[in-house]
Design a protein around this nucleic acid. Sequence first.
DNA 1: CAAATAAATGAACAGTGTTCAGTAAATCCA
DNA 2: TGGATTTACTGAACACTGTTCATTTATTTG
Lengths: 208, 208
Amino acid sequence: MGIEERKQREKEQMRRLILDAARAIFLEKGYYQASIRTIADKIEYSPGTIYLYFKEKDEIFLALHNEAFGQLFELMAPLRMVEDPFERLIAMGRIYIDFALKNKDLYDLMFIMQAPMNMLDDACHWTEGDRVFDYLVDTVRQCQAGGRMQGHDPSTLSFSIWSAMHGMCALYCRDRMMVVAHVSDEFSSESELLEGAFRCYIDMLRKL
Amino acid sequence: MGIEERKQREKEQMRRLILDAARAIFLEKGYYQASIRTIADKIEYSPGTIYLYFKEKDEIFLALHNEAFGQLFELMAPLRMVEDPFERLIAMGRIYIDFALKNKDLYDLMFIMQAPMNMLDDACHWTEGDRVFDYLVDTVRQCQAGGRMQGHDPSTLSFSIWSAMHGMCALYCRDRMMVVAHVSDEFSSESELLEGAFRCYIDMLRKL
DNA sequence: CAAATAAATGAACAGTGTTCAGTAAATCCA
DNA sequence: TGGATTTACTGAACACTGTTCATTTATTTG
């Protein structure tokens, strides 16, 4: 009898229901407004019920964090079509920054917030992060095999590249870009500055 | 009569008392543990009193944020001694990263946390940030005057450089460095990776 | 010394994450 | 089908949060 299977399915549906509500509130009003009670209200269950599906609030946000990585992976999938590794590296950076620009809060959740990290610092193994980073290291290695960016440890260089990309995105997410004179918090000028800084960096990589 | 002056002085002393307690708790147990009540407990006043000296919690943390910038400025003062602008640029980066490494939570407060920014997004003028950034732009301009890093808008290039530095520090502060294989959250290996990535970046700047 | 001003209090409000005894529904077994 | 058992859900309660404000205490002024 498929009773066990149906229960499993219902459990999964309930998790989905909670996650969808949590994501909606999170994206609309931010992490702190996305309280257990507001999530419970939205799905018309009592607060206690949520704890039957998630051990704690941050576990919900780890799940959302993982989903968001899924989105980013999908956006990066077309990179396989780019044959030249250096061109692929550039395209990868562009996709990364573009994702941050268009999904500020998801980017924040993935790479800035402490919440999801608190959930996995026991095992100390950040699977989603590893996956993106490994792909980056691979690409960097291929660039080096093609004669570019010689004389640097690929992991270290990859981290350096990632840092440069993340730095821009993090300053954007956390509203630190207004120090640059011609940017006064307007989206278009912010994204222009990011584009400009990205071009600077690519120019550096090209000459390395 | 100096009664007004004494009152002013006492008011200032009380602010100091609150800020010192807040900083101590913040550095020991983090932002959320540094609640109004724990601060009030530490200085042996009632919670309500704190609101006679600060409009809201984040105003306390803006003050701490400003103090922290004071610290960073002091560390950067010796840069005036470095004559060659490019050497100065490198030294500046080193001081910046070193500050983040040794003052994780202060760096976080200065460049990552939303708290202090919430206090000034009306005026939209981040004085402390401007000051560091302007100094950076100046240095970059001097480098360009000396023939280095030609063909880039100094502001944009400066932002790009700052981003690269901030990226490393932010990934460090928010525990995203464990994706790099030979780093397993140990301080020494983290700081070694930061040093390595910094050297990579300097190498890039040199060739630009 | 009394009146007026200033400073400090702590209870109260509305919110938070989380727990858990109690209730309601679904399932199992005779 | 009917009663026992397991599962799902509830919502009050706990200990906390930032913030406000009537009340009390202390200081200064006339």
